[in-house]
């Protein structure tokens, strides 16, 4: 479902050019649970952002479900982000001063659902991550683990086929980290969602079906578990 060939991405910092991805090839099948590992600065987040259409590569081809994403307009990419992928970030990225219910309803609003349908779907998504009793809470009234669960509910709201998670447990203690991982596992097993997760934790990576190692902007090795 995800097919990438010869993807490059570099950043210009004044006169210096940082090559974050140097001709990377990647294929991921529908329903896979893939962990991405590698040293800091190796290009993991850059890759993930390109997969999720949050960023565009400098060169190479990227097709998602057979559609060439790299040549899409901004609005078409926005629609992909809205319907097909759910993103979970290390730093949660929730709107401040906004209730959990409204956070989760946000992608549904941009998808064009009516108010009542948005609210019932958002409520269901929050129930699914175990936050049925925290719907009116704002981010500053929630623990880190709870905030990340709101973010997962938001990623799930429009029923995307892929969830992308960039170090989702990186800011959490072990206990909450394990709870979050459990939610992801359940989603994968029960709904068959494609799950791509960046992590530095070998134990979490062990839960995945495949682990991809990235170093200096290319895939260094892969192994199937």
């Amino acid at each position: 479902m995800i097919a990438m060939q010869n993807i490059t991405k570099s950043y210009e910092m004044g006169t210096q050019v940082v090559h974050a991805l140097r001709g990377l090839d990647l294929n991921i099948q529908e329903g896979e649970f893939v962990a991405i590992m590698g040293p800091s600065g190796s290009g993991k987040s850059t890759l993930m952002n390109i997969i999720g259409c949050l960023d565009a590569p400098n060169s190479g081809t990227y097709t998602l479900d057979g559609i060439d994403v790299s040549h899409m307009t901004d609005d078409e990419q926005a629609r992909i982000r809205n319907r097909r992928v759910g993103f979970v970030f290390q730093q949660f990225n929730l709107l401040s001063r906004t209730s959990a219910l409204k956070q989760v309803a946000l992608p549904l609003m941009y998808a064009g659902y009516g108010r009542s349908e948005r609210m019932s779907r958002a409520a269901a998504a929050l129930e699914a991550v175990g936050l049925g009793d925290r719907m009116d809470h704002r981010p500053d009234e929630l623990s880190g683990g709870q905030q990340q669960r709101v973010a997962i509910a938001r990623a799930l709201a429009t029923n995307p086929s892929i969830i992308l998670a960039d170090e989702p447990t990186g800011n959490l203690d072990t206990q909450s980290g394990e709870e979050i991982l459990q939610i992801f596992k359940t989603l994968h097993e029960e709904k068959g969602i494609t799950l791509i997760m960046i992590t530095h934790d070998p134990e979490i990576a062990a839960a995945a079906e495949r682990t991809i190692w990235i170093r200096d902007g290319v895939i260094q090795e892969e192994h199937q578990s």
Binding site: D75, A78, N82, L94, L106
Partner: peptide, 8 residues
Amino acid sequence: IRKAVGAL
């Protein structure tokens, strides 16, 4: 954030 979840 809004764009990431699909705002045009």
